[in-house]
Design a protein around this nucleic acid. Structure first.
Length: 946
RNA sequence: GCACUUGUGGCGAAAUUGGUAGACGCGCCAGACUUAGGAUCUGGUGACUUCGGUCGUGUAGGUUCGAGUCCUAUCAGGUGCACCA
């Protein structure tokens, strides 16, 4: 009987859907296992063969775990808010919701064909009000919280209010935007608006005036991870720095916990390293500098406290508030001109053009160690957002300071014995400190670092600075708070209205606050976000509902927030929602959360390393602080699937003709390579008729063939429409079936490696499945298995397979597992194995990989239950025992011959037998045996000398 | 510049973790069955070779009876971060 994958796959898709085979419920009697894929953004282009790679890998694992007896949660949903749908809406006027639903339907259709074990009853869509209810809810919880550094967790903001009312800032250690100090009397004397302004400094979701990445072309701000090399990640438009009032999340408060958590989770080292870089912890010292002839003083941050004696100037960031204070009248014009010029430069320009610029403020700071007056400059190489926005410059030991000093002729004082700073700075943190203090300068403080190593000197300075109240030890993080506002339509609305200019929350029981309809999706004429077009977008505090804007002058009606939330809002806690997707009382019930806990296996690409994977961890930690999520880390194990690149094909057109020359002959002509649709090419051979039909201009094309074929050139490029190299899984499934697609995608290589899609090998997988199918049918095509006792060799083949496949799945080495299947099927075929016992077990083993064919054979074998619940077979070492083992015999490391031994032969037996053997005699002649090494079951090496 | 990561046939890749390098698949070669083959089946396929062997895992050293695997240096590709003081 023919292997008819079309019929088989169609049949089982219907059965699985009808019987809800993959539906799961919490079951305390069984251990849980939570498998998760990063949910897709449903783009208009549909799925290409790269998308299912991770889904197939996780599906195999999910099915395997289910057969192992776990209660497996394997959900799927859609990250449905996003820019493309909105851009499309701006162009066509079509509501993004319509575009999104269409795309989702297309995705679903494609996904269904591949035979995943998703529990679709748990599907979530981030744009669904029932879903974003809980995104808004989480935002409200963050607004109502501050981060208590003492307890190292988020706490309700009313506790902070109570503390302020009782004793002001005294005794409070809370994460904040700006260090404030006030007394209880001051606090109690302030009015409500002033208090709200102060609290905003502490809230975890806060409204802050911050420098943002503004993309004029997109009309919105972008998060740091959405900006790549000074242009927007989507669209590649220029991004400028701009000061704006924005919603922010105090992610920075969690920096240390985000860093520490990495040690507790099973992610690849490179991904953890990427996050460590992004968090950018740096231990250093804050030192206070006073300004000469002034009562102004300011703080700098340094990791090189050992270089205090070599400071020759100070630099402020142009954005620093100190600039205005320190600029003297004589320097004012020059400084203002510099600030103006700097403002005009975009991030991109600053990166592209790293010339040394700066200007003297006219003020001098006093070095607290040497008492010297050192000039204070302004330069854009100092960043406002890091440290204190001010630095002490040590040109001898920092290359940026060095470049600045050389450019402006400032002194350079070396502080490491024997270092040469005539050409460049000595940046390495090593060597013996000297010139600290310098012999020619009268010591200002009774403190010397001379003779210490850099490391010792840093420690000594930290100690000294702390003890003498010149500064403090400080840990800085590069991680910045996440900007949480977007000036877009297609996103979650903030559950916020404004009263007296201060944001107020929509009551929790009124959520969700649904996204209103708008006339157009562009910004308003006054530059407000698209929600400014909404006619019904005001909040009536009395009626507790959304009302018409025109009623705003009514004293109970207030304007609603016009910004929406960014893409990462909806994806930050979706894994929790899958646990309990229809709950309308909570994000997730405590019971569901306690059962499913966190994701055991998360599969997705590395591109989210500094975006979603940081935000999600932050979000979860916040929810964990309140007990809404019972685990500290959301994703226990993370597997990164590699990207599938495209493999483009080229034809070579002879210049100024309509003649195309085959790859091997093209060197004889002047040719232009042209991308040709890879779907017209098979094994790099062009289908001439379909090529002619592809484009009207090729209808009359001529070809110069080699061996009667037109061979195309190829290159590995990104998979994209414009390169004509997009391979759609539907076409593969149509031709080979979903099981072959699944098998082939996994056979391509290790899942974590990027590789080009290349259909050339797919026939091998199709052939294998046919051979596998044929094991169950006799020459006449009748289904044929026997209940006879299987041959010993078949059992050996089987148990070898069980062992290998079980081990390989555990470590995601699917390509080698599939190789093992190929070998086993070949062996069983040549053994003419018809044993039900053996064949049935092979079906249960292959079921995670090729569920459709396994299900069909399982049914034909007489089972009524699904193969998904067939228990995973145990392997028995007894079948793998060999009677004899073959050892390689080497002399001085060179293998000369092999010998057979009984499997239980002792090393001593082996040694004496080998030495006495005829084959060995010729190598032993005239030699002396120094040593004999016997590696059990492998090798015998005899070391000889003359 | 810093960090991480990968280098093995014509190609995708294996290698029991220090023990016969190249499993398995593609491609290629030969044969069988065929009117036909882009179908199916069987066998062969790292390089050189005087057919005894010799050389082979980016390059150069080292440790070891034995190295793709461990150590040192170096080269090349990929990814991430990057005026972070």
């Amino acid at each position: 009987m023919e292997y008819n994958f079309r019929e088989i796959e169609k049949k089982w898709h219907a059965v699985w859907a009808e019987q809800q085979t993959y539906r799961v419920t919490e079951d305390a009697a069984r251990p849980k296992f939570y498998v998760l894929n990063m949910f897709p953004y449903p783009s208009g282009a549909g799925l290409h063969v790269g998308h299912p790679l991770g889904y197939i890998a996780s599906d195999i694992y999910a099915r395997y775990k289910r057969q192992k007896g776990y209660n497996v949660l394997n959900p799927m949903g859609y990250d449905a808010y996003g820019l493309p749908a909105e851009q499309y809406a701006i162009q066509t006027g079509q509501h993004p919701a319509i575009t999104t639903v269409n795309n989702i339907n297309r995705y679903r259709e494609q996904l269904d064909k591949i035979g995943f074990s998703f529990d679709w009853s748990r599907e979530v869509r981030t744009c669904d009000p029932q879903y974003y209810h809980w995104t808004q809810w989480a935002f409200e919880r963050m607004f109502e919280s501050y981060y208590d550094r003492r307890q190292d967790r988020a706490c309700p903001i009313f506790e902070l209010e109570a503390a302020f009312s009782a004793h002001g800032t005294e005794g409070v250690d809370a994460a904040c935007s700006e260090d404030l100090t006030f007394t209880a009397d001051e606090w109690n004397g302030w009015d409500s608006v002033k208090r709200q302004q102060v609290l905003m400094n502490y809230r975890i979701a806060y409204l802050g005036e911050t420098m943002v990445n503004w993309c004029p072309k997109l009309g919105t701000v972008l998060a740091n991870d959405e900006v790549v090399e000074g242009v927007s990640e989507r669209g590649g438009y220029p991004v400028v720095q701009k000061k704006m009032k924005q919603w922010c999340l105090r992610v920075s408060a969690y920096a240390q916990r985000l860093l520490d958590g990495l040690d507790t989770i099973d992610w690849t080292e490179s991904l953890k390293e990427t996050q460590r870089n992004w968090i950018g912890r740096s231990e250093g010292t804050e030192v206070e500098f006073t300004v000469k002839d002034s009562d102004v003083h300011f703080t700098i941050f340094t990791t090189r406290a050992d270089t205090m004696f070599g400071v020759t100037f100070m630099v402020l960031a142009p954005e620093s508030e100190l600039v205005a204070q320190l600029t003297t009248d004589t320097q004012r014009t020059e400084v203002d001109a510099y600030l103006e010029a700097t403002k005009k430069r975009t991030e991109r320009e600053r990166i592209a053009d790293r010339r040394v610029t700066g200007v003297f403020t006219g003020s001098y700071a006093i070095n607290p160690f040497t008492g010297e007056a050192i000039p204070v400059w302004v330069s854009d190489y100092v960043l406002a957002g890091y440290g204190t926005g001010a630095i002490m410059a040590v040109p001898a030991h920092d290359s940026r300071d060095y470049a600045f000093a050389r450019h402006f002729g400032l002194p350079v004082i070396p502080l490491i014995e024997g270092c040469d700073v005539s050409e460049e700075s000595f940046d390495a943190k090593e060597g013996i400190v000297c010139n600290s203090p310098r012999p020619d300068v009268k010591p200002y403080v009774d403190f010397s670092l001379n003779g210490l190593t850099v490391k010792e000197a840093i420690a000594a300075t930290k100690k000294y600075v702390s003890e003498h109240h010149l500064g403090r030890v400080k840990v800085n993080y590069r991680l910045r708070d996440a900007i949480f506002s977007r000036q877009r339509y297609w996103g979650e609305p903030f559950p916020v209205y404004y009263k007296d200019g201060m944001p107020q929350l929509i009551p929790e029981d009124c959520l969700p606050l649904e996204l209103p309809e708008v006339k157009t999706y562009e910004p308003t004429e006054s530059g407000e976000p698209p929600l400014g077009h909404a006619a019904r977008w005001a909040w009536d505090t009395e009626a507790r509902c959304v009302v018409d804007n025109t009623r705003i002058d009514n004293c109970t009606v207030f304007p609603l927030e016009l910004n929406t939330m960014p893409g990462f809002a909806g994806s930050s806690a979706y894994y929790l929602r899958y646990m309990d997707p229809h709950n309308d009382k909570a994000l997730v019930s405590a019971e569901a959360d306690n059962y499913w806990k966190n994701v055991d296996l998360y599969v997705g690409g590395t591109e989210h390393a500094t975006g979603h994977l940081i935000y999600s961890r932050f979000w979860n930690k916040f929810l964990h602080d309140y007990g809404y999520s019972c685990t500290e880390e959301p994703f226990q194990k993370l597997v990164n699937q590699g990207m599938i690149q495209g493999r483009s094909n080229f034809v070579y057109r002879v210049k100024d003709t309509n003649t195309f020359v085959s790859l091997g002959l093209k060197d004889g002509y002047d040719v232009t390579p042209i991308h040709v649709d890879v779907n017209l090419v098979e094994n790099d051979v062009l289908d001439l008729d379909r090529f002619k039909a592809w484009r009207p201009e090729y209808a009359t094309a001529d070809f110069i063939l080699e061996d009667g074929k037109y061979v195309c050139g190829w290159a590995v490029e990104k998979m994209s429409k414009s390169m004509f190299n997009v391979v759609n899984p539907d076409m593969i499934i149509e031709r080979y079936g979903a099981d072959t697609l699944r098998l082939y995608e996994m056979f391509l290589g290790p899942i974590n490696q990027s590789k080009p899609w290349d259909s050339n090998g797919i026939d091998g997988c199709a052939r294998f499945l046919r051979k596998f199918w044929n094991l169950f049918f006799d020459a006449d095509g009748a289904f044929c298995v026997s209940d006879e006792t299987p041959a010993k060799e078949s059992l050996k083949t089987l148990h070898k397979l069980i062992k290998k496949v079980s081990e390989d799945i555990e470590v995601f080495s699917y390509n080698t597992a599939i190789s093992a299947f190929m070998i086993a099927v070949g062996e069983l075929a040549s053994q003419k194995c018809r044993s039900r016992q053996v064949l049935e077990t092979v079906v249960t083993l292959i079921a995670p990989f090729t569920p459709h064919v396994a299900e069909e054979l399982w049914q034909r074998l007489g089972h009524t239950a699904t193969v998904c619940d067939a228990p995973w077979p145990a392997f028995d070492e007894a079948y793998l025992k060999e009677d004899t083992v073959t050892l390689s015999v080497s002399f001085n490391g060179k293998t000369r011959f092999t010998m057979d031994f009984p499997a239980d032969a002792s090393n001593a037996d082996v040694e004496s037998t080998v030495l006495a053997s005829e084959q060995a005699a010729k190598y032993l002649a005239g030699m002396q045996v120094v040593k004999v090494i016997v590696v059990p079951k492998r090798i015998v090496n005899i070391v000889l000398k003359k």
